[in-house]
Design a protein around this nucleic acid. Structure first.
Length: 584
RNA sequence: GCCAGUGUAGCUCAAUGGCAGAGCAACGCUUUCGUAAAGCGAAGACGGAGGUUCGAUUCCUCUCACUGGCUCCA
């Protein structure tokens, strides 16, 4: 047995001990399921009344006592009738038994000493003596719907962490503490990048001056890259009439995610939740020739989505999104090439930002779910095969996920895990075979005939400004590359006498469009250095008598104690080059 | 939206059924300083609305916001 399987066995066994501890204290509690997860385990339980987080300590203690009793785990097969009898007071277990019988799965029950019996497929330690009672802890409570459906009752989920040794557990807890310091919400407030306010509304970020500088830098990058990759830019209104979303087909699939309609004297309007329909209209604004394809329309489009209040989280999930959007209109024979180019664009971005913590996911439709996906089986199969083949050819690793597609077609999502462990889709590339029919997207082919075979690739490699900023903040822990830093250089005169020289230095920096600030000598030099370090300014320039007479600056790089005196001229040139090349 | 938790000054943290206390930041004055916190001073807060009470920041109800998760998604 591998180390990992053994640890999984420990974690799974702990879930059983947790359930046993709960039943000892609350004999009337109803058990859901208790699986193993990445760093531990959880158990979903319905309590007679809500329990408080303080009670976790007590449950933990009981679990330790159980573990020390050296209880053996043993399993046996049972018939459905036997199982129903054993779990007659456990409605959720009865639910599972029904399901397993329907799926013709065998039933097994596992016994933990003589304290606990659970319906379970196995995978435990042989004896609780294999569990290190110091290497696990219960961490937090959460609500979770039974079988993951919001139509079912909500159970209380108790999460636990478990490792082989106390040392590993402590290290993991310490890592979580460290991660909290990189939380984009904390850093964003400290670095004055964005803020929220009750009067504006939840999920509606206000970009502060420094955050806006960064947002604009990222947008500038996108404009340059997209120009290089053959895109043209467009710009569209934030609202549109209901008819547009009826044409696009978004209303039946997406109405819940949109803000409610606004009835005006000349019709009903919606705030846009996506840019695609507007772009499709631009495509159709005049007849297109086959020579024009692929046509790539790009826009940093602002969209509004009425996300459920409970899902909002800092900039990771908001209600106003600035999407790095574009739609590529191409012929069938161009899909592969275009898709590949988008993939390359993605990879180029990730390399530029030094991002490695991502994985590709091929998000597929689900033929059974006709409410969520357009019912065109042949098109689905074609599009899914196209995407799968391109991914395979390009050699990137990917997983497949059923039911994660857009309603109009499959997509390739780039999944990131934030430092606090939340997984979100960052970039997305989608293949849309439904728009051409709905919007009557046409082109004239070589023979002058109308052709409706216009495929649309939706793509957002830089996600939204909001989510991308959240990832960048956590990725760099606030230490942004110079080109992205809101303030690139801070100039510190040693004393008042050096202020005029310092002002000259700032002026020369600004002339080269370098973002520089003066930190006047109203405080001690040490204090101003500390301030600039806390602000995470990439370059601190100290100027005193020596620098003034030598037309030089003393350069202190972020987080580096050793300083270096160089001529002002030299510093200006090398910094300008670094910024224009977007060096890390 | 659902389940649970948390809301004290710009930030970090105290205390309390009976005048809410500090550090940092910001402000004023003094200091003009060579690489991560100079000194003094003044000022600043119980998320909001009800209720219980002689009296509520503290107890209760509602509400708003945030946090952790579920569902959902860029």
């Amino acid at each position: 047995m591998s180390e990992q399987n053994k640890l999984d066995g420990v974690r799974h066994s702990l879930a059983h001990l947790l359930a046993a501890a709960v039943l000892e204290k609350y004999p009337k509690a109803k058990l859901g399921i208790g699986p193993t997860i990445e760093h531990g385990f959880y158990y979903d339980i319905q309590f007679p009344k809500a329990i408080s987080p303080e009670e976790l300590k007590g449950l933990e203690k009981t679990m330790r006592e159980f573990a020390r009793r050296k209880l053996p785990f043993s399993g046996k097969k049972v018939t459905p009738a036997e199982a129903k009898k054993i779990f007659k007071d456990q409605p959720f277990k009865l639910d599972l038994i029904k399901e397993f019988v329907k799926e013709k799965k065998g039933l097994t029950v596992y016994k933990t000493g003589d304290i606990f019996l659970d319906l379970c497929r196995g995978g435990h330690v042989k004896n609780t003596s294999e569990i290190n009672p110091e290497a696990f802890t219960l961490t937090h409570l959460a609500g979770a719907y039974w079988r993951g459906s919001e139509k079912n009752p909500m159970l209380t989920r108790i999460y636990g962490l478990a490792f082989n040794t106390k040392k590993e557990l402590d290290a993991h807890l310490a890592m979580l503490e460290e991660a909290k310091k990189r939380d984009h919400r904390k850093l964003g407030a400290e670095l004055e990048l964005f803020t929220f306010d009750d009067r504006v509304g939840k999920g509606l970020p206000l970009w502060l001056p420094k955050g806006t500088v960064m947002k604009n830098e990222i947008e500038k990058l996108a404009v340059e890259m997209e120009e290089r990759y053959g895109y043209v830019r467009v710009s569209t209104p934030h609202l549109a009439k209901q008819t547009l979303y009826e044409t696009s087909g978004h209303l039946p699939y997406y109405a819940d995610g949109m803000y409610p309609p606004m009835k005006m004297d000349d019709g009903t309007y919606y705030l846009k939740a996506m840019n695609c329909p507007h772009h499709h209209v631009i495509y159709g604004s005049r007849p297109r020739s086959y020579r024009e394809l692929p046509l790539r329309l790009a826009e940093y489009g602002t969209v509004y989505r009425n996300e459920l209040s409970g899902t909002l989280a800092g900039l990771l999930r908001v209600r106003m999104l600035s999407m790095n959007d574009a739609h590529i209109y191409c012929r069938k024979d161009q899909i592969e090439e275009e898709f590949k180019r988008v993939l390359d664009l993605n990879l180029e971005y990730f390399k530029l930002f030094g991002l490695t913590n991502y994985s590709f996911r091929l998000s597929l439709g689900d033929p059974k779910n006709k409410e969520k996906f357009v019912n065109e089986p042949a098109n689905w199969k074609y599009a899914e095969d196209v995407l799968r083949n391109i991914l395979k050819k390009s050699g990137v690793k990917f997983t497949e996920a059923k039911g994660e597609a857009a309603f109009y077609g499959p997509k390739v999502d780039v999944q990131f895990t934030s430092v606090i462990g939340r997984e979100e889709t960052m970039s997305t590339i989608q293949l849309d075979f439904a728009a051409k029919k709905r919007f009557k997207l046409m082109y004239q082919d070589k023979n002058g005939k109308d052709n409706n075979e216009v495929f649309v690739i939706h793509r957002a490699p830089l996600s939204t400004h909001e989510r991308f900023m959240a990832f960048l903040l956590e990725h760099y822990a606030g230490d942004f590359p110079v080109w992205l830093s809101p303030v690139q250089v801070k100039v510190l005169p040693v004393a008042e006498a050096h202020e005029s020289y310092a002002e000259q230095v700032v002026a020369m920096l600004k002339e080269r469009r370098i973002r520089a600030e003066l930190s006047a000598a109203t405080e001690t030099l040490g204090k101003r250095i500390r301030g600039a370090e806390v602000e995470k300014i990439p370059y601190i320039l100290v100027v005193g008598d020596k620098e003034k007479s030598g037309k030089s600056v003393n350069v202190r790089k972020r987080h580096v104690k050793e300083t270096e005196t160089v001529s002002l001229k030299k510093f200006l040139i090398s910094l300008s080059v670094d910024i224009s090349e977007r060096k890390v």
